[in-house]
Amino acid sequence: MIRKPGIIVYIIATVIAFVFLWPVLYTIFSSLKTMSELRAAVPTFLPQEWTFEHFFDIWDRGSWRRGNLARYIYNTFYVAVLSTLLAVLINTMSGYALAKFRFKGDTVILLIILATIMLPLEVIMVPISRVIRFFRIYNTHWALIIPPAATPAGIFLMRQFLLKIPDDLIECARIDGASEWRIFLTIIVPNAKPAIATIAIFSFMWRWNDYIWPLIAISDSNLYTLQLHISTFGGEYRTNWANMLATSTISMIPMLIVFLIFQRQFVQGTVETGMKG
């Protein structure tokens, strides 16, 4: 019989949750403060006077820079969705191949893929930049979508998950005459739903929040993502905190929606694969 957690556990969990939630809530509440409250030497957590003026301000279409907010949201959504679909497709196929097929050099390939996890983006930024220029996709959204489509972490996660599917199940399908594509689509994919949900959520989150790579790969302001747009509020001497906070708050909403839709699969996938954010 599983014992219910005691009150102490709940208190500790609540405190830990609040520690992590604090910066998020602080951002949201600060976006609802007046300019004078934002400037206060001793800032308060909750606004003394609630205002939505900054949200109206960033949507003001009379202004060149602010007026593109809808475009930036669309750009970010476009990049995140397409990149996520590609990531799910490529990572699932690659993970399946490495988990269930034995071929010459499979272990070496897996080790090479795992080794690339150790390389931070900053190290491989210049080579990737040259590759996207070679393929003439620099300064297009494809430069944001294609390079991160196959992630070593995603491939490894999928491989580990698929290792748990009995080989006999696949063998039975083959004996019954199922093609490899049919096995993949009707046996592997349905059984890998928790891992697919985890990859989808992480991929969407990474692409939605991505800043450094779009900064390098995009120079056309019409192609900017939300994170690039938010960074433009920072000047040499002054930062427009009000608009930065309001835009940041808006940028959180799609992530919350995605998480709320997929939270069951996300938790299951995280537990079963050991992957963390």
Binding site: R65, L215, I216, S219, D220, S221, Y224, S231, T232, F233, G234, G235, E236
Partner: peptide
């Protein structure tokens, strides 16, 4: 096209 000041020279 605008770039935030913090990453201006990097860009």
């Amino acid at each position: 096209f605008e770039i935030g000041w913090d990453d201006y020279e990097t860009r």
